[in-house]
Amino acid sequence: MHVEVDQPKCVASGQCVLMAPDVFDQDDDGIVELLTDRPGPGHRDGVREAAAVCPAAAIRLEEE
C-alpha cells in the first residue's frame, strides 16, 4: 500500500490520526503529516478507514 496526503486540502479534522496514529500525525496547525507512505500490514485497515472518512478527501491510497 502506498499513501499520499494533500496538505493544502486538509481541514484538520484529525480523524486520520485517531484511525491510524502510526501513519498520520498533525503539525502545529493541525494539518496532516505523513509518518510513513508505506504502512505495514497491521495499519492498513486503519489507513483505509482514514481515507474513507477524511472530509476533505486529502488522503490518496494505492493498493499494491
Binding site: V11, A12, G14, V17, P21, Q26, D28, D29, G30, I31
Partner: peptide
C-alpha cells in the same frame, strides 16, 4: 474560509485534545 479556519485548527489537534 481556509485562511480563517486554519488560524484556529492548531488548538484542536488530536495531541492537544
Amino acid at each position: 474560509h481556509a485562511r480563517l479556519r486554519r488560524m484556529v485548527t492548531g488548538p484542536f489537534a488530536i495531541r492537544k485534545m
